[in-house]
Amino acid sequence: MLTVKVLNRTNGAYPDSKVYWTFNGQTHSIADQPYLDMPANSAGRMYFHLGTPTSKYNDFVEFTVGPDQFNGNTTRVDAFVLKIAMRLHAADGFDQEVGESRKVFAESRAATFARFKAAVPAEFDHLAQGLDKILSPGGDPSFRPGGRYADYFATYTTAANSSEILGCAGPLSGKPDECAQLNRHVTAAQANDRGAYYQAAPANFYAKFWHDNAIDGRAYGFPYDDVNAQSTYVSHQNPQYLLVAVGF
C-alpha cells in the first residue's frame, strides 16, 4: 500500500474544494479527501483538475505500484497544463523530488507562459495556447509534413522528418539514443554531456525550457528523454508515501 497525498500549491488561485484528483474511477476534491491509499499492482495515471472535475485545467502523473516498488514520473511529452511536482519517500530513507521547480510554482501562470514565449525561438512560441496550455511540438501539426515548420530539422539530418524527431516516431521509434541526440542537438560523443544539450538550433527548445525550469534539471520533454537519466522517472523499493503538488 502506498499513501498518496495531493497538495494545493496554486498560490490561492483555487481553494482545496476546487482542487480535484481522479484515480481508478474515483474523483474527490482534496478538501474532501487529500489522501489516497494506492494498493499494490496499481498502474496508470492519476489526474488532477482545477475548478471542476471536468475542467480544461487538468494534468497527470504516470506510475506503476508493484508489490514492493514504485515506478513513476511527471511528464511534458504531450503538453504542459498544470505545474506538477512529486516527492517519493521510501522506508530506507530514500527521498526524491521531480517536476517543476519551486520557483516555477511560486510565480504566476501568466509569468510562466510569458517566460516560455521569451525563451524559445519563433518556431516554438505558438505552442503557448493563450494561458490554457503549452503544446508539445511532437504533436503539433506545424511540424508535420505540409506544416509551416515541417523542415525545421531538414538542415540538420535526413534521418527523419521534424515531426518524427520531435515525437521519436517513424524511423526513430525504438531508437532512443538517436532520437535523444537529435532533439538535444548533440553528437554521439556528446550524448552523456548535459552541458552540451540544446546549445544550437535546430533542437527541441520546448524540452529545453522544461529542463531549465525543473528540479535538478530533469524533465520528460519528449518520448525518449529518459536517455542519460534526464527524465523525471523515479523508481525505488518499499515506498512509504508520495506527495503530489499541483500548481496553476
Rank of each mutant, 00 (worst) to 15 (best):
1 M>E: 09
7 L>C: 09
8 N>L: 05
9 R>Q: 15
9 R>H: 11
10 T>Q: 01
10 T>W: 03
12 G>Y: 01
12 G>N: 02
14 Y>R: 12
15 P>S: 04
15 P>G: 03
21 W>S: 03
22 T>Y: 13
23 F>N: 09
24 N>K: 14
24 N>S: 15
25 G>E: 08
30 I>E: 09
31 A>M: 09
32 D>M: 10
35 Y>S: 12
36 L>G: 03
36 L>K: 12
37 D>N: 14
39 P>W: 12
41 N>C: 08
41 N>K: 13
42 S>Y: 09
44 G>L: 07
49 H>W: 05
51 G>H: 06
52 T>W: 09
53 P>N: 05
53 P>E: 03
53 P>F: 08
56 K>T: 14
58 N>K: 04
59 D>P: 07
61 V>P: 01
62 E>S: 07
63 F>T: 05
76 R>A: 10
77 V>K: 13
77 V>G: 04
82 L>Q: 02
84 I>P: 06
84 I>C: 09
86 M>L: 14
86 M>P: 01
87 R>Q: 12
92 D>C: 09
93 G>F: 10
95 D>M: 10
98 V>H: 05
98 V>D: 10
99 G>I: 07
100 E>K: 00
102 R>K: 14
105 F>V: 09
105 F>C: 00
107 E>P: 05
108 S>F: 00
109 R>A: 02
110 A>D: 15
115 R>Y: 13
117 K>M: 13
128 A>P: 01
128 A>C: 03
128 A>Q: 00
129 Q>S: 10
131 L>Q: 07
131 L>F: 05
132 D>K: 15
133 K>Y: 02
135 L>I: 08
136 S>E: 06
140 D>M: 10
141 P>G: 01
142 S>H: 15
144 R>Y: 11
154 A>C: 09
155 T>Y: 04
158 T>L: 10
159 A>N: 06
161 N>P: 02
162 S>N: 08
166 L>T: 06
166 L>P: 02
167 G>W: 03
168 C>H: 00
168 C>S: 03
168 C>E: 00
168 C>Y: 05
170 G>M: 02
171 P>Y: 08
171 P>T: 01
171 P>S: 02
176 P>E: 07
178 E>F: 00
181 Q>T: 04
181 Q>N: 11
189 A>T: 06
192 N>M: 10
199 Q>E: 08
201 A>R: 15
202 P>W: 04
204 N>R: 15
207 A>Q: 07
209 F>S: 01
210 W>F: 15
210 W>C: 07
210 W>R: 04
211 H>N: 08
214 A>T: 03
221 G>M: 12
222 F>E: 03
223 P>T: 01
224 Y>M: 11
226 D>R: 11
229 A>K: 10
229 A>N: 08
230 Q>F: 13
230 Q>H: 14
231 S>H: 04
232 T>Y: 07
236 H>M: 12
241 Y>D: 13
242 L>N: 00
243 L>Y: 12
243 L>K: 05
244 V>Q: 02
245 A>N: 14
